[in-house]
Amino acid sequence: MLLLFVPIGIMVDLSENIDKMIAKQAPADAILWYYFHFTIHFANLLFPFFLFLSIIWFTSKLANNTEIIAILSSGVSFMRFLRPYIVGASLVATVVFFMGMFIVPAASKGYNEFRANYIKRNKPSLNATALYNQINDDEIIYVSSFNGGNKVGYNFTLEHFNDNKLEYKLSAQSIRFEQKDSTYHLTNYVKRTIGEKDDIIEQERVLDTIFPFKMEDLVPVDYVAETKNLFELNDFIEKEKQKGSGNISGYQFNLYKRWASPLTAFILTFIAVAVSSMKRRGGMGVNLLFGIAIAFVFIFFDKVFGVLAESSGFPPLLAVAIPNIVFGVLAFFLLRNAKR
């Protein structure tokens, strides 16, 4: 199924984007790496669909040749008939789990970065307003607006606390990250140190200094969770919680979905076997049609609850669990009917 669909996906993507790659002078090696990452990203994205089609295909062949009837008529139980499918689902689940945790994130990073640099019309600017971030236990930063294209923040403020008491406050009209020496360029800089009786005020028209944060930390790109492996994503979520980020639900949904992928593999396997193990008058075509319909409904459920988790405050764990619970119950009833 991968050999059938991935080349089609590559050709469609290439035909749509070749003009943009030429216009932006994308290097040949970068294009080759992009399609290597595209293959992994595309296969992971359509994994439920591929799994469904592959199982329905060969199980329908068995059913149409009356082999399943012969197997069960010889005294083999239906659960014994399912054993090779369970072994196969275990192998697939193991591969999908480790790929989703460690390999797919690296591929997603290369895939998204290439599209941002050479395919999308405008490189993501990460523009935003009214941003705040707790960079550690004692310091909070704020900018009224941020332009990610030139990495400039406006009306910058840094507040430093000691035992929950404000110790000093830095402010500047603008802050810009200088890539060449990894420093921050501040304009109209003011530092106010809180004293017991009098405050100490320091002013500079221009100041170059170092801060323990990156400008991109204010506005992470929307696909940032996809590009981190299991350990990186866990650390990233903890840091975002400390910062009070508003995107925690989306990051947690991505993490829970990876953990649920092995369970999804088993559920889809059982549904596909139940759908295709009966010999039908319409043959393989009817089984494929029914299976594809269920696969698309599953993908639809998954996407809807993913959007709810990221946008409406819906609990991310429930967003991952509900589609698997619903289709797990469906798999149980379909298997019981197929056994009968």
Score class of each variant (00 low, 15 high):
Ile56Asn: 02
Trp57Ala: 04
Phe58Leu: 03
Phe58Cys: 00
Thr59Lys: 10
Thr59Asp: 07
Ser60Asn: 08
Leu62Arg: 03
Asn64Asp: 15
Asn64Trp: 07
Asn64Arg: 11
Asn64Gly: 12
Asn64Ile: 07
Asn65Leu: 15
Glu67Tyr: 12
Glu67Asn: 10
Ile68Gln: 05
Leu72Pro: 00
Leu72Ile: 09
Ser73Met: 05
Gly75Asp: 07
Val76Leu: 12
Val76Gly: 03
Ser77Gly: 12
Phe78Trp: 07
Phe78Ile: 01
Met79Glu: 13
Arg80Asn: 10
Arg80Val: 05
Phe81Ile: 02
Leu82Glu: 05
Arg83Glu: 09
Arg83Thr: 09
Val87Leu: 15
Val87Ser: 13
Val87Phe: 15
Val87Gly: 09
Val87Pro: 01
Ala89Pro: 05
Val92Thr: 14
Val92Leu: 15
Val92Arg: 03
Ala93His: 13
Ala93Tyr: 03
Ala93Phe: 12
Val96Cys: 14
Val96Ile: 14
Phe97Leu: 15
Phe97Val: 08
Phe98Ser: 09
Gly100Ala: 07
Met101Pro: 06
Met101Thr: 06
Met101Gln: 13
Phe102Val: 01
Ile103Leu: 15
Ala107Gly: 11
Ser108Phe: 11
Lys109Gly: 11
Gly110Pro: 02
Asn112Gln: 12
Asn112Lys: 09
Glu113Asn: 09
Glu113Trp: 06
Ala116Trp: 03
Tyr118Glu: 05
Ile119Gln: 00
Ile119Arg: 04
Ile119Gly: 01
Ile119Phe: 08
Lys120Arg: 15
Arg121His: 14
Asn122Trp: 10
Lys123Gly: 01
Lys123Trp: 11
Pro124Met: 10
Ser125Glu: 12
Asn127Trp: 00
Ala128Gln: 05
Ala128Cys: 03
Ala128Pro: 02
Ala128Phe: 04
Ala128Thr: 07
Thr129Arg: 14
Thr129Cys: 03
Ala130Asn: 14
Leu131Cys: 10
Leu131Val: 07
Leu131Thr: 05
Tyr132Asn: 10
Tyr132Thr: 06
Asn133Thr: 07
Ile135Cys: 07
Asn136Pro: 09
Asp137Gln: 05
Asp138Trp: 01
Ile140Val: 09
Ile140Glu: 02
Ile141Phe: 11
Ile141Asn: 10
Tyr142Trp: 11
Val143Trp: 11
Ser144Phe: 03
Ser145Ala: 08
Phe146Gly: 01
Phe146Asn: 01
Phe146Met: 07
Gly148Glu: 10
Gly149Ile: 00
Gly149Pro: 00
Asn150Thr: 04
Lys151Trp: 06
Val152Ala: 06
Val152Phe: 00
Gly153Asp: 08
Gly153Pro: 01
Tyr154Gly: 00
Tyr154Gln: 08
Asn155Cys: 00
Phe156His: 03
Phe156Ile: 04
Thr157Leu: 11
Thr157Met: 13
